[in-house]
Design a protein around this nucleic acid. Structure first.
Lengths: 192, 192
DNA sequence: CGCGACGTTGATTTGCCTCAACGATTGTGG
DNA sequence: CCACAATCGTTGAGGCAAATCAACGTCGCG
């Protein structure tokens, strides 16, 4: 339960009282794999902080093609930022990939906390910045790197996550077909 | 000079006095093509609003490959949001593509305006959201669309811009080589 | 047990890149 | 005002990365 306090303390300092107040405004939930937390086309009202397990956010194209925006495992936040911030309906799904224990921060409680602990504005602003810069970087990576290089970056960013999720999810994240991803990995193994 | 007030009025309502105050905090500048407004590796301290002309933001990879983040023409804002918000050095260049007349809003003046006209926080928050969602959409497009489809989207988004800038800039934006882009266009012409 | 999702492998195709050459346009200095 | 260089757009030949289609073994789960 202290994991989320660690996350906060990376950017702001809270007094014990403030920490307690913060914790009183988040709700713990245990979720089974395949649970859908957020539907494309609906308005996102919560942010999720992952204590254990794995979540992913993705969208689905006109067709039936899924594309993964991000994964979130222990210590990460995940949400449909656009929908959450704008109050408009979003285009992302959020789904549990591996049984998870998460903390839910509703937008409503977030506003209350902003009022009580203004420092939190800074914290969540930094989260948005990080999201923005992560998107920018990934966009540039997709324009300029090969699939193999993107895979390397994925491994660095998500560490052991790669051993806990279906390989096709990774393929989707780096933007290749599962078949090609499989071949790529065996090629990498041979050349090392 | 009223163009920027139109931009504001799309999301918030300002009284004449507030409008005047706002205008007093931005500085008009006339710039020649090829002017560099922002250097990668430096801290971005301004937002730019384009009255006329064209600007672009881009980064340069390890190598010598440029990738365009965005264009801005009449009525658009442009800046290195990440650097501006975080105060850290950014990785984008901002350059004038076509002689331009812009309004410069320094971060300093922006803070002052936030204080005097709190409604502006809302306006700039919406700008950030739009930036975030534009990045997300482009990321998804790059993962799932062909070069031709990305070109179509570019045309819709940037309208007549395509006739005013070097074609290689468009190629860079949609993520193909100038050669391939040229062939693609002539193929499109034949098939229509 | 049997079904469905997943990962793998092979054959073939295709979208896009690289390299190279050439005309047209721009702009710059003499 | 011309001459030359530089930049740009186009075209072609050839190559490679990744997609598509199809078949098959494996595993987890109802």
């Amino acid at each position: 339960m202290t994991l989320i306090l660690d996350s906060l303390s990376k950017h702001i300092h809270l007094t014990p009282q403030e920490q307690e107040l913060f914790l009183s405004k988040v709700e713990s939930k245990k979720l089974k794999a395949k649970t859908i937390l957020q539907q494309s086309g609906t308005i996102c009202k919560d942010s999720y902080f992952v204590n254990s397990g794995i979540l992913r956010s993705f969208n689905i194209n006109d067709n039936i093609v899924e594309h993964i925006m991000s994964f979130a495992c222990s210590g990460w936040w995940i949400s449909d930022m656009y929908s959450l911030l704008s109050g408009k309906s979003g285009n992302l799904f959020i789904e549990v990939l591996e049984d998870a224990e998460i903390l839910v921060l509703s937008k409503e409680n977030q506003e209350i906390l902003y009022h009580e602990i203004p420092k939190l504005e800074r914290f969540f602003r930094i989260l948005i910045e990080n999201s923005l810069v992560a998107n920018q970087e990934r966009l540039m990576d997709n324009l300029s790197l090969s699939a193999e290089e993107r895979y390397e970056k994925f491994q660095v960013k998500y560490q052991d996550l790669q051993y806990r999720i279906p390989q096709k999810q990774i393929a989707s994240f780096i933007g290749v077909t599962p078949e090609f991803f499989s071949k790529m990995k065996s090629r990498i193994l041979k050349n090392s």
